[in-house]
Design a protein around this nucleic acid. Structure first.
Lengths: 413, 413
DNA sequence: TATACTTAGTTTATTCGCTAGACAAACGAT
DNA sequence: ATCGTTTGTCTAGCGAATAAACTAAGTATA
């Protein structure tokens, strides 16, 4: 008896398997059909059948379900290619809306996007020296405003994503956000309770990486490294087309990668950390010791100041930027050797100094990186500007909604 | 007309999709059943149904097919747990054999394994200064001997895997093996033609990583970094349970990661590369400049010499090893911050100096690595000794055989 | 020893989703 | 006006999984 109970317990523990049956076949095929519609919209049923290899009848029935579920629309007939004119299908990007929040060290940027990631509304606010509760208030204000501004739609707000500058574990707890002075903060349940929709908390660099993959320069690539250079440096990893989080969600902490074993000690206890040489922190410090006149005291302004000076051709400013660029190159070189990515994207605040950083970075990589690793490699700056992270978390929310929408039995409204 | 042709071409290009139907359901479920048998052997049909969630009848029919295909066996009845005694099922690990080759800089190690990765026969040879054709001869000798020694089995030799100390792209071409002086070598077709079985060429570190994942310390983990420290340093990455190869198969070239921007120039053109500080190369160089008496000239012997000296308590030898250990720690610290792995395994030749390397490595990590990244993290040395890579490539071959065996229609003998 | 209860494995009927192929609708070309 | 083409729907049939009945072979208990 005891033996049996023990075994059943063991059996139960192992029962986390996905078993394959017709139901999952249907869900997968429906997902495939929807993906093709999103990707090639407008497209006909016949073409979907051609592309996917599914039978025409199967496509027809799946498409009809998707129409009932309000996820796609039929528009008028398309052009004939020698026979009956096809009925064109479109993804119904207005079936619902996602909220994406980039919660920065001294700002909150919020966007409302449709299901295709188009920004419909945008709200921003700045702050300094607020504690957790006060920031939460600001956050709720932004979200309230975005939700209020959302057009009427079948599904309404489908989810909220929040990117934060800190370490987030797999349970969406914020373990540490040094620059916000947060430790072990449970933001997700707080927001989820207030708004009653799924909430996703993600590290800012991870969110940015995903944003770039979905909407930016990385659309066609599967191995993308997003280097977020702000006050510190964080890295988001898209490997094999998926966000890689590591064992506990702490991957990409490359700001604390040693690039100089004999270098100065970092706050983290380690020596010669990359972010001591290539972050905004470094730029400001170098600027100060180079005696660059930087009008204000506030951080945000002074990165701007360096850029302004560089625009006028100030030698010292140019020198500081060149140095930072070279050091960025050092770390990126390491990243390339580790990951052999298709694409490295540099984003966040530093991107505004792009003009002066590109030459030293490229020069370093060309000289220092193994030739074969440079094959098929692109290095670029973010073209989503400041929106990478906000769009990324919004996309997470959207994706989760669509996934659950397709796999639920009770999917019809 | 032209328009249509153009479109059909486009359609064909996109038709690389896996379409979901009953057939794949069956293949997946059959794979699942076989996996559980391999994992929990001996196990009854009833327990498989319990673990997988599949229906008893489904399991019965899949099991019967597997028996016909010679992939599993029935043994006598097991212990009753209050009712009819179950018929126990076993994986038929002797249904075929794989050849695994570790092709080193100055040696070839070959193993013949059963389908469970147990080593049945082992052959080894050493050489120096041979060119490609001569090495190929040696290789064929080893493979011939292993195949000749293989017991009779239903499937015979199911595949050959070869691990090489160089850069291998996704098409199994060896682009560069600096220490063998190979460049753009097409080993796979040569071996495949001679033996008429599937051949897999893989980078030695990748192979080692996979070997450790399947048979070594990494069995229960999904994110494993295998650091192969020999003459140089190569790293194999198991991420999300799968080998990560990067865009072109060049991932893990971390021997050329900069850990000292102001350090000496490496052969590769970069500065302060990790392998200048922590490889066998470094050990020997340090030993020389420390005036360590090292009897012979040959590489292999002199690492041994340092170890022998360390055993006698020689202060200089201990100092050299301690230094190497610290530098190993520097690189591993970077790896941890990048990947947040469950497990870091240090393997290849350096593993024989394990005793003296463990303390400095652990000390460095404890002091320099962010606290949260140390959570759930294990660092250990290979316990497969010199077999990691050979077992890994053999396992690749085995896995490919089983996969094709399950998905083929004509699977019955 | 006889009976009831348990567990293992097989068999049968049913369900579900996909496919093939027939068919109708809509269009272009001659 | 007719023929061939393309789009989309409909129907029959098939393959695989499931549920549940059933057979087989044990244990537990009175």
């Amino acid at each position: 008896m005891l033996y049996y109970k023990k075994r059943m317990k063991e059996v139960k523990r192992l029962k986390a398997n996905k078993t394959w049956n017709q139901h999952v076949v249907k869900v997968e095929n429906k997902t495939l059909v929807l993906e093709k519609i999103i990707e090639h919209s407008p497209i006909s049923r016949a073409d979907i059948a051609g592309i996917t290899g599914l039978n025409k009848g199967t496509v027809s029935s799946l498409v009809n379900e998707l129409i009932i579920e309000n996820l796609i629309n039929e528009s008028g007939p398309g052009k004939s290619s020698g026979g009956r004119r096809p009925v064109m299908l479109h993804f119904n990007q207005l079936a619902g809306y996602s909220v994406g929040i980039d919660l920065g060290v001294n700002y909150i940027l919020g966007v409302l996007t449709d299901l295709n990631g188009n920004i419909c509304v945008e709200k921003q606010t700045g702050f300094t020296g607020l504690d957790y509760d006060e920031i939460l208030m600001e956050l709720f204000h932004i979200i309230d405003a975005l939700i209020a501004a959302a057009p009427k739609s079948p599904y309404g707000i489908v989810g909220i994503g929040i990117g934060v500058p800190g370490i987030v574990n797999k349970e969406n707890d914020i373990l540490l956000a040094p620059n916000l002075n947060w430790r072990n903060v449970h933001l997700k349940p707080a927001v989820e309770e207030k708004y009653g929709v799924p909430v996703i908390i993600e590290n800012e660099a991870n969110a940015g990486a995903y944003g770039e993959k979905k909407f930016g320069a990385g659309k066609t690539f599967d191995n993308i490294i997003y280097v977020s250079v702000g006050v510190g440096i964080g890295v988001g990893l898209i490997l094999n087309g998926k966000l890689y989080r590591g064992n506990n969600g702490f991957s990409g902490e490359l700001g604390h990668m040693t690039i100089d074993v004999n270098g100065p000690t970092c706050e983290c206890g380690n020596r010669g950390c990359w972010e001591l040489y290539a972050s905004e922190k470094f730029l400001l410090q170098e600027a100060r010791s180079a005696g660059l006149k930087n009008g204000e005291e506030e951080n945000n302004a002074s990165l701007q100041t360096i850029i302004e000076l560089a625009k006028t051709g100030d030698a010292k400013a140019l020198d500081v930027l060149d140095k930072a660029g070279r050091y960025l190159g050092v770390g990126i070189n390491n990243i390339i050797h580790a990951f052999n990515p298709d694409l490295v994207i540099i984003g966040n605040r530093i991107a505004s100094a792009k003009t002066w950083l590109i030459p030293p970075i490229h020069q370093w990589i060309e000289n220092q990186t193994l030739w074969f690793s440079q094959k098929d490699l692109k290095i670029s700056f973010s073209d989503l500007l400041a929106y990478s992270a906000a769009l990324g978390v919004a996309a997470f929310a959207t994706e989760q909604f669509i996934k659950s929408s397709l796999s639920d039995e009770a999917s019809a409204l």
